[in-house]
Design a protein around this nucleic acid. Structure first.
Lengths: 282, 282
DNA sequence: AGAAAAATGAAATTTTATTTCATAATTATG
DNA sequence: CATAATTATGAAATAAAATTTCATTTTTCT
């Protein structure tokens, strides 16, 4: 996490002297990265060891390491993650905040993904007789997007965002079928049931969800996508975008596994759309 | 200027020993920022003063200052956009590449958005009698997502991904209606026609598309979302994610415009979903 | 109020970076 | 192609910066 943010967040857990250092740093971080520990200590009217302890408290190895982190925070321009949208933000401000928090959450999501599980998922997907993608609400669109992608691969793929159709489909699944269940919370009852049904009918169940949730427990493979929840303003935002990026990863893994001839095919699918479009002049 | 770039540029003006240092730095900059001058000197098989001179040559005050610059270069992220997925990539590699290029493209998209147009769009959206979102293919899911969001605001909102329904809907639109047409290419014939029909029937047409396209020309307001095309592997990837982030921006703008009471309402909508979910233990 | 715990800073120590200066390598010149 | 001039380099010395130790002060908890 961005160290400037971290300082802001932990401001009230600091001791009196530590807060003095924090204030100096926050008020002019750009000066600090060019100061020695002695200069900073003097500026904050505290001793050098206190500055050093302050740095360690923030999980850095010491003052020079702390400066490195600080420099990186500053380089990123405006610090990312928990920049919350504010009542009085201009269009430019909230646009930036939303994009930045989306990017930060993608970074989080990437870190939370386990390459081994992705690899296994790609294995299973490439070998499937039939693919099903199920989601509800915001995750329904992720399922649809997956359908749109995998359909191009010329494999049997279905997608439902209707509880009953999902159940029927799950009950009719069999060995060799792959069911991908998408739910950020992992707690949507009907989806958990669908996962259970599919599993009982010998389908391989891949869950795109948060780890350690009821849904995760029902899945053969869990692809956990962590995002920082509190950036969502009462509606799914970063979560569905991270899920879509994961769909891209799975689709890419799929095409890589299938080899280069297969990719020529994809080009054909894309080219087939050409007649529906206006030509480019350039 | 980015110091890593600078090192690359000036590589041939360096002396033999300096080049050794440069190579070590370029090959693993992330290790270097955590190394002492002694460690780096040893790694490059040259003496400490040489490292120091190398730093000064690059207009830094000395080794620690150089590390600061280096840290900042690294923080800006290697300009990832063009990191293409390769045939032999491991799951971890292509996952990182896809996430990184998605992030880079979000950054591009953000820069291409015009705050004024966003503001006008939010204006228009908050005052609309009826909202319609139209898209096809990958953009259809963006339209659905928008519907899912705006529906929570308790405004009349429709969404079609069927050409005929879109046309009928456009023909029936009237003054005070807002039609949002989504197409990355901006060249999908039927969508351009829908935009034209809607405009002819006095609806306000907002286009989420690339600027200077046939679709853009038909719109009252263009929200241009630029992404680097060549990251898409024969299927829409970054483009739809950037569009979704834009939907988040519009939805956020909408809620801000409507004030705080309105946001309590959103919470209610979210809470209404609770009974469909398994409880959290924590 | 008074003991225990935590926070703080002065001084000593250690680590790290820089300067100085002698030597080696390279380049230019007759 | 020798040799002077220039430039590059590293060993050792010095300087600077950071960290540790430990005694003192402040805070917190009975």
């Amino acid at each position: 996490m961005n160290i400037l943010e971290k300082i802001k967040n932990e401001l009230d857990t600091f001791s009196k002297s530590e807060r003095k250092v924090a204030e100096v740093i926050l008020s002019s971080p750009n000066t600090v990265i060019h100061s020695s520990i002695a200069a900073l200590a003097k500026q904050a009217n505290i001793s050098e060891p206190t500055v050093n302890r302050f740095c360690r408290r923030l999980d850095t190895k010491g003052y020079p390491d702390f400066k490195l982190h600080l420099a990186q925070s500053l380089a990123n321009g405006t610090p990312y993650v928990n920049r919350h949208v504010d009542e009085n933000d201009t269009a430019e401000e909230y646009t930036s905040k939303i994009f930045e928090s989306t990017m930060a959450n993608l970074e989080l999501a990437r870190k939370s993904l386990d390459p081994t599980s992705i690899n296994r998922s790609v294995d299973v997907l490439t070998q499937a007789n039939k693919l099903s993608f199920f989601g509800l609400g915001a995750s329904a669109i992720v399922a649809r997007d997956a359908q749109n992608k995998f359909f191009r691969f010329n494999v049997p793929v279905i997608c439902f965002d209707d509880i009953l159709m999902q159940r029927m489909s799950a009950i009719n699944s069999r060995q060799g079928d792959v069911v991908v269940v998408i739910s950020h919370t992992g707690r949507t009852k009907s989806l958990v049931e669908v996962a259970t049904l599919a599993k009982e009918n010998d389908a391989t169940v891949i869950g795109i969800t948060t780890k350690d949730t009821p849904l995760a427990k029902e899945c053969s493979i869990v692809l956990s996508v962590d995002v920082s929840e509190d950036t969502d303003l009462y509606m799914p935002m970063a979560s569905r975008i991270a899920q879509l990026a994961l769909i891209d990863v799975l689709a890419t893994g799929f095409t890589l596994r299938r080899g280069s001839k297969f990719r020529d095919n994809l080009k054909k699918v894309k080219d087939s759309l050409r007649s529906s479009r206006f030509d480019r002049k350039d």
